[in-house]
Design a protein around this nucleic acid. Structure first.
Length: 808
DNA sequence: GCAAGGTC
């Protein structure tokens, strides 16, 4: 008769699977290593009657290590471990004699069915098993397949039988991916651990750790703790204000209301609302809302959730919790404690498990009630295909379990009872009030049905003082309104439970290894466990993580320099996304659009502010006003054109006072008056923001010409001076202050040539170059000067045509 | 003396 060897990942699974496939008819014996059992029975395979031997390994058979001589820390350069040091597979646990055991049981077998866990690690163990047994198995007939893989997703009769009836083959590529991971973990971990340890120990005498380890799981775990530490260190407390109102009706106690704006960071704004609302003694009830809310019963318990609760509620660390859970499991008090599954198998005897708990005085009342009223259907969870959720397996008393054993058992049992209890239901009432036009509210919860919270009282709805009976339109009397000053506060150090959640979320470690990694960073003195099981990084832990950040250039910079998006104040809107860009004042001052991730240079050495929310007609960017100082020159500029000159005759770094846009109201063409009185190429441009001390400033040099003080309005006209070709200027004065002859209030003329303007323009410059005033380096008729404006063409009549001609 | 993944 032929023999089929079947191998599971652990003894408990071999037993369960054998029980299902033999329909409870198997004989069991211990294997030679004392850890694994062999379950034997007769059954059918490939249409024939065969002898089945179901056994297991204990996790990985082999583990990877460097060959012996590379274990000398003093003689081997860690860099060699990283690249070319040879590795070898060694028995993972020599005491278990696993290869020998497999060979003894595999000898003479005809077929093998691999029942390893259905994940990558399991696939890898398949090949470890095959490597051990294939040399001793009987050879199959020509081309006959002797190796089979069972794929199952839960340990239920249906699933196991389905797997048995649809056998496949093991996936070598998945197994190889685990080999690759193992080698990377080994090389990176050992190389960096040795390097760090030797490097720091050779440098610092007072280092409080003999081993400074590095690993792809432990280091990110430490990273989470240090990240929180950095947030706490860099936290800057801010003051904010809250409007607090107390109202009452009749002889009731005053009711404290919450402000619907929650808070303001501006004291004056807060005070304004106080002043506004204080004018009323009445608070009107706007609405009374009642809503039935449900607090859901928990899902069935898996390892990670057990570790979280044990840490946060029982104050027990994950490593310790797992040790206790193991003990409870081996003593038969709870089911297998390492599982990711939160869904009970369909055939799970919930009622039977519950009945075992009806004599325990701590929860017998709740259990009796459930048994008589009927169990509630558990919530749907996820079936990870490993083991059923963690449940109590038999009754226990505090005396027989010992302190921590009892506390964990107590929690597991209460959690189990809760999963088959009703949800907790409560009524949430919210009353909205208005005082003047400000909205305040208060809310309260009233328990309607405690459900599972009777057995998990720490999750119960706390008793609150009942809200007053009232309805829409009722009027309360305002007792007091005050502004309460408060401070924002920094976060606290990470709790162990939060760390477990972060690790799970980011895929750092597995349910089985999370406790190991957390334990590692404690033992290596990278973190200490503080009250409330909060993990506070030590100096060593902080310095290490900061060091890792520094190995990247960006991170090195960010230690001293904040990223652009985090600095600066909102200034003007981006023409592309229309969101506010931030102004970074530090030199070189610039604008940054965090949405477009673009940075725009600006004029330096002056003050930048928003220019009346006016926009550049070319790109829609909001214009800025650059000012050199209190009475200095100023001009608008477009942040986009500044770096991207829009016209061929413009260069980078030009403001609107040099822009040759033919029609824009801010351009040189619209505001240019005449040639500069000192420099060769400059044009004097009207500063439209300078009134009432009006001035024009050269767009090339520092010349500023003051004119028409106290004028009501100064505008550049379309027409030019007959004599000097400068643009005419139209000036309006107030009737009472007009310096114009014969009580006139308006006059148009040339700034340089007009007699009426003569005394109103301060042309005091020694080096007067203007054609009509002489004394300069050049005279009228000298080299190409012409009109005050750049270009010699007549003023364009057709703006659209001019625009078209100008666009690049 | 080192990693991380199984499991006892």
């Amino acid at each position: 008769m032929r023999t089929v060897l079947m191998v599971a990942e652990k003894p408990s699974l071999a037993q369960s699977i054998a029980k299902i496939l033999s329909k409870g008819n198997c004989s069991s014996r211990k294997g030679l290593n004392g850890a694994c059992s062999v379950h034997e029975y007769m059954g059918s395979f490939l249409g024939q009657n065969m002898y089945f031997k179901m056994t297991s390994v204990c996790g990985h058979v082999m583990s990877l290590d460097f060959i012996g001589k590379y274990n000398n820390w003093d003689k081997v350069d860690p860099a060699e471990l990283f690249s070319n040091a040879p590795t070898e597979k060694k028995e993972a646990n020599p005491k278990l004699n696993m290869v020998k055991f497999l060979q003894v049981e595999g000898k003479g077998c005809d077929y093998v069915v691999l029942w390893l866990d259905c994940d990558k690690e399991g696939e890898n163990i398949c090949f470890e098993v095959l490597d051990a047994i294939q040399p001793v198995m009987n050879k199959g007939y020509y081309r006959e397949n002797t190796v089979y893989r069972a794929k199952f997703s839960s340990i239920t009769d249906t699933d196991i039988w389905n797997a048995m009836n649809c056998l496949g083959e093991p996936n070598r590529n998945e197994a190889l991916s685990v080999d690759a991971r193992q080698e990377l973990d080994l090389r990176i971990g050992c190389a960096f651990t040795r390097f760090q340890t030797k490097y720091f120990q050779g440098k610092y005498g007072n280092l409080d750790s003999s081993l400074i380890s590095f690993g792809p799981c432990q280091t990110p775990t430490l990273g989470f703790c240090v990240e929180r530490h950095d947030k706490i260190q860099s936290f800057k407390s801010e003051t904010y204000w809250v409007l607090q109102a107390k109202v009452f009706k009749g002889k009731d106690n005053p009711l404290t209301l919450d402000w619907n704006r929650v808070r303001t960071f501006d004291r004056e704004v807060g005070q304004m609302f106080v002043n506004l609302t204080k004018t009323s003694r009445e608070a009107w009830v706007e609405s009374v809302r009642k809503k039935e809310k449900v607090k859901q019963r928990p899902q069935a318990l898996n390892t990670v959730e057990m570790l979280r609760v044990a840490s946060s509620a029982l104050g027990m660390g994950p490593q310790h919790t797992m040790q206790i859970a193991e003990r409870l499991y081996t003593q038969g008090y709870i089911s297998y404690p390492r599982t990711e599954t939160t869904h009970y198998p369909d055939n799970f005897d919930l009622k039977g498990a519950l009945k075992q708990q009806c004599n325990n005085p701590h929860w017998s009342e709740e259990v009796e009630a459930l048994l008589s009223a009927g169990l509630n259907r558990p919530r749907k969870g996820t079936d990870a295909g490993d083991h059923p959720p963690i449940t109590p397996m038999r009754a226990a008393s505090e005396a027989e379990l010992g302190s921590d054993g009892w506390r964990l058992y107590d929690y597991i049992t209460r959690h189990f009872i809760a999963t088959v209890s009703e949800d907790c239901k409560y009524l949430q009432t919210t009353i909205d009030f208005t005082i003047r036009n400000e909205v305040f509210s208060c809310s309260g919860k009233t328990l309607t049905s405690p459900g599972y919270t009777t057995v998990m009282p720490w999750q119960g709805i706390p008793l609150e003082e009942a809200l007053p009976d009232c309805e829409c339109g009722d009027v309360f009397t305002v007792d007091e309104i005050k502004l309460v000053e408060k401070q924002t506060s920094p976060p606290d150090y990470l709790t162990e439970a939060e760390l477990i959640t972060l690790m799970e979320k980011h895929g750092v470690g597995t349910d089985a290894s999370i406790p190991v990694h957390i334990n590692n960073i404690c033992q290596r003195n990278y973190v200490t466990v503080e009250t409330g099981r909060r993990l506070k990084p030590t100096n060593l832990g902080v310095v290490l993580v900061h060091g890792y950040y520094k190995t990247g250039m960006d991170e090195l910079m960010e230690v001293s320099f904040s990223p652009l998006a985090a600095t600066g104040k909102p200034m003007s809107r981006c023409g592309k996304c229309h969101r506010f860009m931030k102004y970074i004042q530090a030199k070189p001052s610039r604008l940054h659009c965090s949405h477009c991730d673009e940075t725009y240079s600006l004029s330096q050495n002056g003050v930048i502010k928003l220019y009346k929310e006016l926009r550049c007609p070319l790109d829609d960017f909001e214009l800025l006003l650059w000012t050199s100082g209190a009475r200095g020159k100023s001009y608008p500029l477009c942040p986009y054109c500044f770096s991207n000159p829009p016209f061929r005759d413009m260069k980078k770094g030009m403001g609107c006072n040099e822009c040759t846009h033919p029609s824009c109201q801010h351009s040189l063409n619209s505001l240019g008056i005449g040639q500069c009185v000192e420099c060769e190429s400059g044009i004097l441009v009207l500063d439209p923001t300078s009134g009432p001390k009006w001035r024009m400033a050269c767009n090339k040099c520092n010349v500023v010409v003051h004119f028409f003080e106290h004028a009501h309005r100064v505008q550049v006209a379309q027409e030019s001076c007959e004599a000097c070709d400068a643009s005419l200027v139209v000036v309006d004065f107030n009737k009472t202050r007009s310096p114009l002859p014969a009580g006139e209030t308006q006059h148009a003329g040339c700034v340089f040539c007009d007699r009426v303007f003569q005394d109103l323009v301060e042309l005091k410059h020694a080096n007067m170059r203007h054609p009509m005033h002489g004394g300069g380096v050049s005279r009228r008729g000298g080299r190409g000067r012409g009109r005050g404006r750049r270009g010699t063409a007549k003023k364009p009549k057709d703006k659209m045509a001019a625009l078209a001609a100008y666009f690049v």
